[in-house]
């Protein structure tokens, strides 16, 4: 397997102390919000949620490496950590879990974060199309906008992912295929999902460089993603980054992992908690102290409170919006259905 980090002679850039502290702050904010969202669901504030517990390093690290003035994110439904890292409005993001609006209420164009996708695989192709659009726009090498597409070991089985990788490699599109291999596709483990055991290994077949990175090491993920982005930005084409991590929680708030794995397996297979690991590193390197960690947690709690209040205050969208966004130019038939709905539901 080619190593994307080895492509450029420069090697990975060292992260400064403040960058490392910022990565930690982001991971704490994401962890706290993620755990809170499960509580929100248990309390009846939202009907469902897909936790990302254990994937903070993969999501924060990759999101942190992006240049949001020109890059574009293509998520699926478990990328809350990426959304938070790149600055998506989190009330508008979480609105999809409140069943307010499929795809979320945030403006995907302004946020440079595509609508949340509930079905995996399909959006990987969109990243390739968007990326090829950057090539057609003609930005000079070194300044290309890059599409980063997030998917998991489960989605890697979809035909669309193969088509996307092949298209991107043929067209040398500036895409980073970012796989979070978290060990499980709902109840099916990676060994019964990914032949050969690695999605990154497939890249060789498309002539693409790839790297399998420790997905629980936020610094390693940041550096690997930065290298992949630099490769694409320079016009050298797509790459695959496979972050090896572990889904520590259930697939969703409706899932029951006890039916397919034991708590003991979770403890041994989960590896080191990415948050605890980063904390130990910061302490060991003298970059942060207990006061910093307390401050980071307090900030995360304050942030969660604000988001929770926002979600709590979020009412249902007006029913007219069912009709408003189907077309740019709505048909007469749809307008007639909208008026009939209004007359019969509001008795106007």
């Amino acid at each position: 397997m080619a190593d994307v980090l080895a492509l450029d002679d420069t090697g990975p850039a060292e992260l400064a102390g403040e960058e490392l502290r910022e990565l930690y702050r982001l991971m704490v904010a994401v962890r706290y919000l993620d755990e809170s969202a499960i509580r929100w669901q248990r309390q009846g504030l939202i009907p469902g949620y897909a936790p990302q517990l254990g994937q903070e390093a993969a999501q924060v690290g990759s999101g942190y490496a992006l240049d949001m003035s020109r890059d574009f994110v293509f998520p699926t439904y478990r990328e809350m950590g990426v959304a938070r890292t790149v600055g998506v409005d989190m009330v508008e993001y979480m609105s999809t879990h409140k069943a307010t609006w499929h795809g979320g209420l945030y403006d995907p164009k302004a946020s440079r974060f595509a609508p949340i996708q509930a079905v995996v695989g399909g959006s990987v192709l969109h990243a390739v199309g968007w990326a090829h659009g950057q090539t057609l726009d003609g930005a000079p090498a070194g300044e290309l906008g890059v599409a980063i597409t997030y998917f998991g070991d489960g989605a890697s089985s979809q035909g669309d992912v193969h088509e996307a990788m092949n298209f991107a490699a043929v067209m040398k599109a500036p895409v980073v295929f970012f796989i979070q291999n978290n060990g499980w596709a709902i109840s099916v483990p990676t060994e019964r999902q990914v032949a050969g055991g690695s999605v990154a290994a497939r890249a060789a077949g498309y002539g693409m460089p790839s790297i399998q990175v420790d997905g629980n090491d936020v610094v390693a993920v940041t550096q690997a993603t930065a290298a992949a982005l630099a490769h694409a930005r320079a016009g050298k084409g797509p790459t695959v980054v496979e972050a090896m991590t572990y889904r520590r929680g259930p697939h969703s708030t409706s899932d029951d992992p006890g039916r397919y794995r034991t708590l003991e397996e979770e403890r041994t297979d989960g590896g080191e908690d990415p948050l605890a690991r980063m904390r130990a590193r910061l302490l060991a390197d003298g970059i942060a102290d207990e006061a910093f960690f307390e401050e980071a947690l307090a900030a995360a709690k304050a942030e969660e409170e604000q988001i929770r209040e926002g979600i709590n205050a979020l009412g249902p969208r007006p029913g007219t919006e069912m009709f408003d966004f189907v077309y740019q130019e709505p048909t007469q038939a749809l307008k007639a259905q909208a008026s009939a709905w209004r007359e019969e539901s509001e008795h106007v």
Partner: peptide, 28 residues
């Protein structure tokens, strides 16, 4: 060749790519 181009033989890819191109402001 930039504006009229052959794709690999995969229709889902052609349509999925068109979605992304439209998101980038093109009219595929």
């Amino acid at each position: 060749e930039a504006r009229v181009f052959d794709t690999p033989l995969a229709e889902s890819g052609i349509l999925g790519m068109s979605v992304g191109l439209a998101m980038a402001g093109y009219h595929p």
